[in-house]
């Protein structure tokens, strides 16, 4: 089997959930600030589906990452930094998407504010994890590990 297969799969799988989650956060935030407008409901509906697809897309991203690192939960150096942020981000993403799926497309304004805070925290973790993932890619491209 091609040894770089999981590395390629991880690269292909990670960007969709990041983009979808960021998109969901942006749409819900705009919908929250424009609550009185007729299109706000549509924004929340799209935000609902994008967070669900983002969460679903994170599963293959995590599986390919685990297989790529041969099951390293933390590792060392840049990989450790990546993992320290990616595991909480993954858990929070699944929790947030599950909450949204249970509560529905149009949660109450007060609940939506709390939800957006959670999404912001998760997105921050995800972006930091992605940053270290990118640094890791550069480092291993220059000096492959044993």
């Amino acid at each position: 089997m091609d040894q770089t297969l999981w590395s390629k799969a991880h690269g292909a799988a990670t960007h969709f959930p990041i983009a979808l989650v960021a998109c969901s956060a942006a749409l819900d935030t705009v919908g929250w600030f424009r609550a009185g407008r007729p299109f706000a409901g549509d924004l929340h509906a799209v935000g609902y589906w994008t967070i669900l697809f983002g969460a679903a897309g994170s599963v293959p991203a995590v599986i390919s990452g685990v297989l790529m690192t041969k099951g390293s939960v933390l590792g060392h150096g840049l990989l450790r930094l990546h993992h320290l942020f990616v595991w909480p981000a993954f858990g929070l993403l699944i929790a947030i998407a599950t909450w949204r799926a249970l509560v529905g497309r149009h949660p109450a304004r007060r609940l939506l504010a709390g939800y957006l805070c959670g999404v912001a925290a998760m997105l921050t973790l995800l972006i930091i994890a992605a940053y270290w993932g990118g640094e890791l890619l550069l480092a291993t491209a220059i000096e492959p590990g044993p």
């Binding site: 041969k70 099951g71 939960v73 595991w87 909480p88 993954f90």
Partner: peptide, 17 residues
Amino acid sequence: AGLLAVSSALGGAHLVR
């Protein structure tokens, strides 16, 4: 669900390792 997802991933990683 979040805890279950992370623990499943960590458990799976342990098996892979």
